[in-house]
């Protein structure tokens, strides 16, 4: 059942409010750069990282959307969001960047069981 070499990185923090999102994505990118397979799950505040309308705000702020756009280049194609998170934030899937898969919230427990390693950020 367990996919030994797959890692699930869970993003749970919004862009700009802290560095947790960016440094979490860095772990996903490094995993992929080392040839590992990685899926990203966006939970709670983390879903805000996927809003396609994001852009640079205050001068000197580093945007996270370019990193999200870079994921595909690293073959990180599995971007997952539970339906309940979208509902809770009143966000519809057409407000999100391309390539996001909306999953039923009831699938979360089995999703967590499936991966050999899970890192929560």
């Amino acid at each position: 059942m367990t996919r030994e070499n797959e890692r699930l990185v869970v993003i749970r923090h919004a862009p700009y409010s802290s560095n947790q999102l960016r440094e979490g994505l860095d772990v996903a990118l490094v995993t992929a750069a080392f040839g590992g397979s990685v899926s990203l799950l966006f939970l709670g505040q983390g879903v805000l990282a996927l809003l396609k309308e994001q852009t640079v705000g205050a001068p000197g702020q580093k945007a996270t959307l370019p990193t999200i756009d870079m994921l595909e280049m690293y073959d990180i194609e599995n971007l997952l969001v539970p339906a309940e998170t979208l509902q809770a934030f009143n966000i519809t899937s057409d407000q999100l960047v391309e390539g996001v898969t909306v999953i039923p919230t009831s699938e979360l427990p089995s999703l967590f069981q499936r991966y050999a390693s899970v890192l929560n950020f």
């Binding site: 749970r12 709670g44 539970p82 979360l108 427990p109 967590f112």
Partner: peptide, 26 residues
């Protein structure tokens, strides 16, 4: 699977844990 929670019971972290919990988890 063991879940460790260190935030209050009504925090985002706690809610997310409950969504991820399987029946046999601790």
């Amino acid at each position: 699977m063991l879940h460790i929670l260190n935030k209050p019971p009504h925090s985002d972290a706690a809610k997310q844990l409950l969504l991820a919990l399987s029946a046999d988890d601790t």
